[in-house]
Design a protein around this nucleic acid. Sequence first.
RNA 1: GGGCCGGUAGCUCAGUUUGGCAGAGCGUCUGGCUUUUAACCAGACGGUCGCGUGUUCAAAUCGCGCCCGGCCCGCCA
Length: 552
Amino acid sequence: MSDESPYTLQRDLEEDERHAFWADIVADRVESRDPDEPIVVKGGISPSGVPHLGNVNEIMRGYYVAEVLRERGHEVRQVFTADDRDPLRKLPRTLCDLEGNLVDLGEVDAGALGRNLGAPYTDIPDPFGCCDSYGDHFSTIIQDSADAVDVPIDLVSNTEMYENGDLEEVTRFVLEHRDRAREVLSAYQDKVDEDYVPFNPICEECGKITETVTSVDLEGETPTVEYECTDMDAGDQTIDGCGHEGTATLREGKMPWRFEWPAQWQVLGVDFEPFGKDHAEGSWPSGQDVARNVFEIEPPVPMVYEWFTLEGQPFSSSEGNVILVSDVLELLEPEVLRYFFAKDPSKARDFSIERLDQLVDEFDRLEAIYFDEIEADEDEAAFAERVYPLVVEEPREERIRLPYTFAAVLGMFDDPDLREDVARKEGHIPDDAPEWAVEDALARVEKARNWARRTANEFDYELKRTEIPDHDFDAATEDALAELADFIEAGHEPDEIQGEIYETAKRHDVDVGDFFGAGYRLFFDEDQGPKLGPFLAKVDREFVVARLRRER
RNA sequence: GGGCCGGUAGCUCAGUUUGGCAGAGCGUCUGGCUUUUAACCAGACGGUCGCGUGUUCAAAUCGCGCCCGGCCCGCCA
């Protein structure tokens, strides 16, 4: 088979290859290769630092293909490699603890990390002291992220695969055929010369990964290499080698990435792997060449996905432009996040917290289309029909979704009963709704409340119930407030109260805008707020009256 | 400089394979909800489909040339 474009979703398709959902296109290609069961879908990242939402591509894109294949009756294993034998090449400026809180490098033992530059992630102590190693720390967060979006991954440590011998045979193979390996890779990398050896041992003296192998001995019972611990280039800086000369087994080191990746394909039997566009023009061409012409295996079905941005900017933990799965799930339901990753992977997208309501609205629409509650054109309907069941745990028609911004409005009340009451009065909860549906619907209020807080947007108001905000009104305003209190005490409808606010202000010759401002001050300690009449009508009357009289 | 991917309404995006009326949601505006104060309802506005060019009865869609953005073409992953 000749070179294969990794842009699997961007190829021209025949009539019978078209699908509403991209994962079906990939699944077709996987099936057409008649793979052994279980079919293996792989992803992987290097646990080098904060695992942000962008890394979730690596989990979710594979997941949809895995699910589609399962639906078609296949047994599927979704493997995720933590490429944790990779060396730490530079100090991250920002880390995060297991709860996802960002932590500046200065707050941990930076010296300990600095001394470990060049060493495998799994050999570096966890700066937080909670896991077995640096690599383990971040792998744990990756696993937690997958769990949080309910994706069953089989997390495999690359270090473990070397140490337990799973990669030994293939490492031995590539060393045995290192002439061929050199020949193939030299077409992609200039530095590959006749001294190049596709194995980097770990220095037994200083623990760093070294690139200088001086001889290879595959004859003995345990194959080994001899090495000299030399300097390593890492970006613009150099990590010093210690000069030690020693011997390492094939379990005590790693293959360079260009060989390691295809080696993983072989050992794990990978049938499909999605990867970011950074791999599309470099790693993938060499990877498939190495797979076919060094290891003599067929590379997996590839799929390039576009990166997305956060608030229009690239993800960057050091710049603080980063968000973790755990953060996102405080703002919306897992199924909404899963929906985000069901969208076309070949389009670059922006994940905007600022406009998160749009994403949630989109999801709600998908759901409503699926249940035939609203009209949609053919394409959108076909997409909803196919994708919705894969996005939610279980399609249930009786479920209720409060519109996200409405949920944000309800978030201004801290009283759960009041929230439900208002949602019912506004017609968002039907009378015959089952209890679980009401509970689930109201759970969104907390999410939307967090969103309002986080973005400090126009919904970020909080009823100041416990104590009266500082205020300073003139006599006319105070009189007007007292009169309004009497009116409300007498009991009136929301729209009557709204009208009365105007009337009261006019009667006392108070500017209407200022009078509303006084109300917002008293209840929210803000200049602005929600539509005041209906709002006051919904909060318990006793409190409203007392607050208007500035008694508490 | 070369290769690849993307560019559709103010925003987020469908539609591009198979050429056939330019689409949705949000936002905006107007109106309604008996009264400028953000929840609800209705309607309207909104477009050089990145630009140019070719093919065609017909181009967002196909060809060619360009522009802009991103990725790769050292190393590493």
